[in-house]
Design a protein around this nucleic acid. Structure first.
Length: 288
DNA sequence: GTCTACCAATGGTGAGCTAT
DNA sequence: ATAGCTCACCATTGGTAGAC
């Protein structure tokens, strides 16, 4: 089996898990209305725990299929992606599992990995939407699954966010010399915080880069340019003195955007369609 | 083996803006 | 007036290295 074939088979199988109940835990049925109200408020707290259990379950599920002695699916936590095919196939196929509790305010899962890791398109992302079988109580139930390529998510994210000088997207630094716990793999986003006047100045600089200045590019050259706007010390110092220095160097104030790459916001076409399909389930009547 | 320092990464909430 | 949405911000976690 070739790696694309393995990914394809696994992805199809994951999609077929729709409707499955995960017998991992059960929330007891509330006996009175007061407790039911309370439960409705806090049920989303289960999300991280159930998410992890679903990841574990998905791995077990995949190993039920026949893989022609090429290997087995193995869960790595921590590590990226969550689930990899451990065998004699290269590049190593993998599936990153993201879980979504559709009653929460938004899809809180993020996808920050640099597009540089997906050259071979060997990684897929599965978004698993789940709810308790009776909305606020019962066992977790998979209501739908979407699978797409990691590469397409990364591309959607980078093109959606990068828009200098208003918004800058940075590749992870070269950390190959560091120990494993200090390795960077994630992109990050920074939002402009300066005044209108400063913005016009920044825009001038950006325009001076020439045609295609706002198209995202992970090359060292482009990254160097946007890094100049941010300045290496902008988030450490916020005094008038620092502001003056930054003006002299042509760098401006930015804020690290911790919402960056939430998959709810990256405007990935297929994922948006899936999202709208799932929102149906927010309507409790449609659920029964 | 244990403790401290440090770090990447994630799940989640709510104020305030906007369209109706 | 209000429902829905955008965006800023927070709390917390799991992990390693290095000193002792």
């Amino acid at each position: 089996m070739e790696y694309r074939e393995i990914l394809e088979t696994a992805s199809t199988h994951l999609a077929s898990m729709k409707g499955q109940i995960m017998p991992v835990l059960e929330v007891a049925r509330p006996n009175d209305i007061e407790y039911a109200k309370h439960l409705a408020k806090v049920i989303s707290k289960l999300s991280p725990l159930v998410g992890n259990m679903i990841e574990y379950n998905v791995c077990t599920e995949l190993n039920k299929l026949e893989w022609l002695n090429n290997g087995i699916w193995r869960r790595q936590d921590p590590g990226f992606p969550d689930t990899v095919f451990d065998g004699n196939i290269y590049p190593i196929p993998g599936i990153e599992i993201k879980t979504w509790f559709p009653l929460a305010t938004e899809i809180t899962a993020r996808f920050k990995d640099s597009i540089r890791f997906f050259d071979d398109d060997q990684t897929n992302v599965a978004l698993v939407a789940w709810l308790p079988e009776f909305i606020i109580f019962g066992k977790p139930k998979i209501i739908d699954v979407w699978v797409g390529t990691a590469k397409s998510l990364a591309m959607a994210r980078d093109t959606h966010y990068n828009n200098p000088p208003d918004y800058l997207v940075f590749e992870p630094e070269d950390t190959t010399d560091r120990t494993s716990n200090l390795q960077q793999t994630n992109t990050n986003g920074y939002k402009f915080q300066g005044t209108k006047n400063e913005f016009s100045k920044a825009l001038e600089i950006v325009k001076s880069w020439g045609e295609g200045y706002s198209v995202y590019d992970y090359s060292a050259e482009y990254q160097g340019k946007i890094k100049q706007l941010l300045g290496s010390f902008s988030y450490r110092l916020d005094t008038n003195f620092a502001k003056k220095i930054k003006q002299l160097l042509g760098s401006f104030s930015y804020r690290l955007d911790t919402n960056f790459a939430k998959i709810d916001r990256i405007e990935h076409l297929e994922l948006e369609a899936f999202k709208f399909a799932c929102i149906e389930y927010k309507n409790i009547e449609s659920y029964y």
